[in-house]
Amino acid sequence: MIVSIKNVSKRYGKQDVLKNINLEIESGEIFGLLGPSGAGKTTLVRQLVGLETPSEGENYLFGEMMPSLKLIERIGYMAQSDALYTELSAKENLEFFASLFGLKGTHRKKRILEVMQLVDLSEHLNKLVTNYSGGMKRRLSLASALLHEPELLILDEPTVGIDPVLRQSIWSGFYDLKTQGKTLIVTTHVMDEAEKCDRLGLIRDGVLIAVGTPAELKEKTGSASVEEAFLAYGGVQHEN
C-alpha cells in the first residue's frame, strides 16, 4: 500500500468539495481518478502532494501522514497548469527544477536528456518555452515531474491538449514507468483513457462512487464501456 486516504472531507466555506473519501492505492499500479470537471479530483490529488490539507480525515503516503516535507522528494507532481517559466528555454527550466531536488552535474544532464527523450522533445531542448505549442508545454511539464525519478507520480490531467498519436506514446511511457516499479495516479475526464488504467476510482460531486478495475466496473453494471458504467453508478446516486 502506497497511498491510503482515510475519511477525507474538504470544505471551502459552506461548499463540500470532498465527502468522506476512503481509498487505498497499491504500489506499482496505474490508478485513474475519473470524473467530470468540478468533481473534486484536483482537490484530492493536491492533498496527496501536500498543497492542501483535508478538513477532516487523513492522507497517508508511504505510511506517513501528509503533508510532510520528507515525503515530497519521493513524489512527482504535474499540475493542471503547465507551471513553466516561459521566458526561459526548456533546458533552463529543467535545470532549475532538477536543482530543487538536489540533482547536479553529469547526473542532472543525463536525466534532462532522458526525460526529454521520453516526452519526445529532444530536438527542442534549447528552444524558449514561449515558442512551444500547448501540447509541447504539457509534455515538458510532464518531463519536469519525472526528473528526480519519484516512486509515486501524481499527474493531474496529463494528456489534455495532446494529440492521439502522442497520447499513445505518453501512455506507453507510463507503462514503462510502471514496469520500473513506479506507482502512478492519473486524473482524467476522458473515458477512453480510463480504460488504460489498472484500477479506477469514479468520483462525482466530491463522492467516490465506485472503485475497481475497468473490467470489474463494466461487469458489475452490465455496461459495454467505462462511460456507461460511470453513468450507471452516477444514475443510482441520482435516484437517492
Binding site: 498543497l51 516535507l69 507532481y77 499540475a79 493542471q80 513553466l84 531536488f101 519536469s144
Partner: peptide
C-alpha cells in the same frame, strides 16, 4: 498565477 509557485512548493524547497 502561473502555477510555478505551487510547483516550487511541491518540491523540497523550503
Amino acid at each position: 498565477t502561473s502555477g510555478t509557485l505551487e510547483k516550487l512548493l511541491s518540491s523540497p524547497l523550503r
